[in-house]
Design a binder for these strands. Structure first.
Length: 289
DNA sequence: AGCCAGGCACCGC
DNA sequence: GCGGTGCATGGC
């Protein structure tokens, strides 16, 4: 159906485009049709078409796939064994994984992840996506245009650091505008900010991110889980709070207790458990408040 | 029309 | 430390 040049990836396991992109971890994709997605990251755009266990990837090369996208999709990891471990003796996870078997934790760019989750507070996913699209259209480079579809990359730090609170308000960020400016200024003013984050223990990295005005525990943990490879984190938002209380604990449990429960139950794999549970539970209950 | 959305800061105790 | 409240915006 699409005649352009592409590369072919074979023998994929535990991989489903819809599950990966619609589980709420990433915001810069466009669903062309079932099993056919455009993805914008790393200043590039690719189109992925999945059939069973194989994938056609357009607008990339074998080298680029190995260098960027393989790790982005976390393909070096055996999700079969992760799923077996976290769902052992756990009927809730067994059920969530049965429904959302193809989720993978994407290794996304830290800065874009942080900005995305600062914007995410008190918003739903479609609105987060539209704001990120606005920011990219206005301040990112046009990276693809075939007359039918066009895509803009997420702006670089050097561009972002020139934006003011008023700019972000104009981009519909509302009360988050000063948060975004504070985050960007701190990162721009500290050389290798995220390199440092990568090198320190998770708890310290979380504290450092929380120095940013407008970054609390949840945004810090989402940044670290989805953007810095800290797959042991179990970010507690309203849904995760609700589902953990509902399935495992009891109502009105303190968030710190929820996090320590997850750490004790799933250890280094808590982030995977969080994502399967979050996606399945939200799907099942959305609209019910 | 009013309520809600992958929270957070700020304010009273 | 904790619980309550306001916050910009858009979709329903």
């Amino acid at each position: 159906m699409v005649k352009d040049k592409h590369i072919q990836i074979e023998a994929l396991n535990d991989f489903n485009l819809q599950h990966i992109f619609e589980c709420g971890q990433s915001f810069r994709y466009l669903k062309e049709s079932q099993n056919d997605y455009w993805i914008v990251a790393f200043g590039k755009v690719i189109r992925l078409i999945q059939e069973e266990n194989s994938l056609k990837v357009y607008h990339t090369t074998e080298e680029e796939w190995k260098k960027l996208w393989f790790d982005y999709f976390d393909l070096g990891r055996d999700y079969g064994s992760i799923k077996a471990t976290i769902s052992k003796d756990d009927s809730h996870l067994k059920e969530a994984i049965k429904q959302k078997w193809g989720v993978r934790l994407l290794n996304q760019e830290p800065l874009e992840t942080l900005i995305s989750f600062i914007i995410s507070q008190n918003k739903n996913i479609p609105h987060i996506m539209s704001i990120l699209e606005l920011i990219s259209k206005e301040y990112g480079d046009l990276i693809f245009d075939d007359g039918n579809r066009s895509f803009y990359c997420f702006p670089s730090l050097s561009v972002l650091k020139t934006l003011t609170i008023e700019d972000f308000r104009r981009l519909k960020c509302g009360f988050r505008a000063p948060y975004l400016v504070d985050a960007i200024q701190r990162i721009a003013n500290e050389p290798d900010y995220f390199k440092q984050i990568q090198q320190i223990p998770t708890g310290e990295a979380k504290q450092k991110l929380m120095e940013i005005h407008g970054v609390g525990e949840k945004v810090a943990e989402c940044t670290l889980l989805f953007g810095c490879g800290r797959h042991e984190l179990y970010p507690v938002d309203v849904w995760v709070k609700r589902l953990t209380e509902d399935l495992y604990l009891q109502k009105d449990t303190n968030n710190a207790v929820i996090r320590s429960f997850a750490k004790q139950k799933w250890g280094e794999l808590a982030g995977y458990a969080q994502q399967y549970l979050f996606y399945a539970y939200r799907d099942r209950n959305k609209g019910k408040g």
